[in-house]
Design a binder for these strands. Structure first.
Lengths: 341, 341
DNA sequence: CGTCATGCTGGGAGCGCTCCCGGGTACGCT
DNA sequence: AGCGTACCCGGGAGCGCTCCCAGCATGACG
């Protein structure tokens, strides 16, 4: 059994290598009957172009890299990444791209793996997410001229990215709590070395400021996006006796809910809660969690689209895409069936 | 700035293309001084071999595929996959392999994507996991001669795989419950269209049989590995009034615990529980969950090692690797601090 | 001194594809 | 009849690497 090449397919179909190539790649300039004949041969031989040869000749690989420099545990503990990867795989499947996954446990591994990540012509481009602010990998990629986009606002400028309206979302979520008449507002905040953390915190603060509410000592404690950290942070926040708390992620909010229960308090009566992400389903918690939804799957899709633009065009007209957040009202904020109570 | 190729590096180091290739690939037959000279040039030019060309010439790509034909939600809801992927990335990083990820929502997508997955010489081999029994992809891969291994026992034979002692683990977990004096044993079972589900169920049954306990109607209800399904299945199991239940996964056990609470029962007093996987951390649930631990990270690592053997050698001496499970005793089974009570 | 193994190096061939150019054919128009 | 043009198609060149073989020293040995 002969190895299948363009040449071989051409021989069997009675045409040349070039013509087969044109057919396979859907180019014009092929007559209908030839096209049909070639397609028939391709179909019944099960011919598949050799992607290495194709890459070599065209300097495109059809492989996109997803880089997540964050330890795997936190990654899989937060449903956020599941949704994100879902969006990314969906979009790259649709664009006929293959996805390569790079996970780094720590900075050492990041440094070690870096050469492979940018490995000459293995990847067409990268999607980078879950970076800490000041992560050197961003600058290295920029310097090395690798096409890449980020999910989540980068701290340096001039890098194309997709993000949600974090600041605005946090503002609105907090305002909702304030509209419930709450005045001792606290927050289980996201890590301050992430731009999402910074933005959500600043939205929270802005809401307080706009309502003329001073922020008290101890009412903001930082978590690391994990449920456990949410529980721990909330436990400390509760010591400052808030009547409402904005949690910067749903996963942390789930932990916070447990903290409230352990403290013998009731939610929303004693402490109202709003989360962020829109990941928890409605009856996963008790009370059901009011949350600021962000379109994570769409974020992943948008990231792929943006990256493909960068790869194809070299640069891109609108290098930042910011998706809207939306409040999903359930019980933990104090709303009844009918709305604000 | 000239494009860096082997030839160019050779020119700068005053040697030939071939010699540079030998140095870069760590072959013998290069004198120490030449080697040093070449390495110096490589280092300060930042030369990186073109992987497409390398693949074309050597017909090895250094890319491994991980195929998970299961919807993304269930995938990321169960920490199992996080651990598995952790093990796989760890091992493939160590072996200097890149990991490509293929997720399929449904069988349609699986069929559609199949050509790309086995895309001629993009991948050296595949790791396949989370398949349902009788999934046609397994047979197709076998027929197409793609090197692949499975995580989880395949239902057909002659495919290399890595698995845990599911049957034995379920048996021991159930026996532990029986040793606590429980006699009305139930189970929240794993899907019967997975080999893990079949094996764990048969272990459960075997334990009952060996203790001479008959299985009553309604005491076994099947879940789908999700927490929600665990809750629902457990709710139905409870109608048959068990005094102990073996949950075929920890994620389902977490749901089962909620079902027990909602039914106004106490665990372990009214209903004792043992889970499977060893994923939950000790104080995530109340009471803490007794569980049959399986080494998931090691499973991932073993899968990579096995696959690399298959890829390199074509076949392999010991095509199945079964890792041991181990009971982690905590509270939900009825054990006190000191052990069996 | 010839012979032969051994160590090291260079260059040819070829992996299977894409891209480009050039040639052939058919047709319409002047 | 002559020419331009659009449409198809074939083949050369080349992508950057690996693999193999030949060649040249060098030294050991008979």
């Amino acid at each position: 059994m002969k190895r299948l090449t363009l040449e071989e397919i051409g021989r069997r179909a009675g045409v040349s290598r070039s013509t087969v190539s044109r057919v396979v790649n859907g180019h014009r300039d092929v007559s209908a009957d030839v096209k049909e004949r070639v397609l028939a041969v391709v179909a019944d031989t099960g011919y598949r172009p050799n992607s290495a040869a194709r890459s070599l000749a065209s300097s495109r690989t059809g492989v996109l890299g997803l880089v997540i420099p964050s330890n795997v545990h936190s990654l899989f503990d937060d449903p956020y990444f599941g949704r994100l990867i879902q969006g990314i795989t969906k979009a790259s499947n649709a664009a006929d791209q293959t996805l390569a996954l790079f996970l780094f446990e720590d900075e050492r591994e990041e440094t070690e793996m870096y050469p492979r990540v940018i490995s000459n012509s293995l990847l067409d481009g990268l999607i980078l997410t879950a970076t800490r602010m000041g992560d050197p990998i961003v600058e290295r990629l920029r310097v090395d001229g690798v096409p890449f986009v980020m999910v989540g606002r980068p701290d340096s400028d001039s890098i194309p990215y997709v993000d949600a309206t974090n600041q605005r979302g946090a503002f609105d979520a907090t305002m909702h709590l304030i509209e419930h008449g709450r005045r001792r507002l606290g927050s289980v905040a996201a890590p301050s070395n992430t731009t999402a953390g910074v933005d959500r915190r600043s939205g929270f603060m802005a809401a307080l400021a706009s309502a003329g509410i001073p922020l008290e000592e101890g009412l903001v404690v930082e978590g690391d996006f994990s449920e456990r950290s949410g529980l721990e942070a909330m436990t400390r926040v509760l010591e400052a006796e808030p009547d409402a708390v904005f949690c910067a992620s749903d996963t942390m909010a789930v932990g916070a809910l447990k903290a409230i229960a352990r403290a013998g308090l009731r939610c929303p009566e004693d402490v109202a809660l709003v989360g962020f992400d829109g990941l928890a389903d409605a009856n996963q918690t008790n009370p059901s969690l009011t949350t600021m939804y962000q379109p994570v799957v769409e974020t992943g899709e948008a990231a792929v689209a943006l990256l493909l633009d960068v790869v194809d065009l070299g640069s891109v007209a609108e290098p930042r895409k910011v998706l809207p957040t939306e409040l999903i009202v359930r019980r933990s904020c104090g709303c009844s069936e009918e709305g604000l109570s």
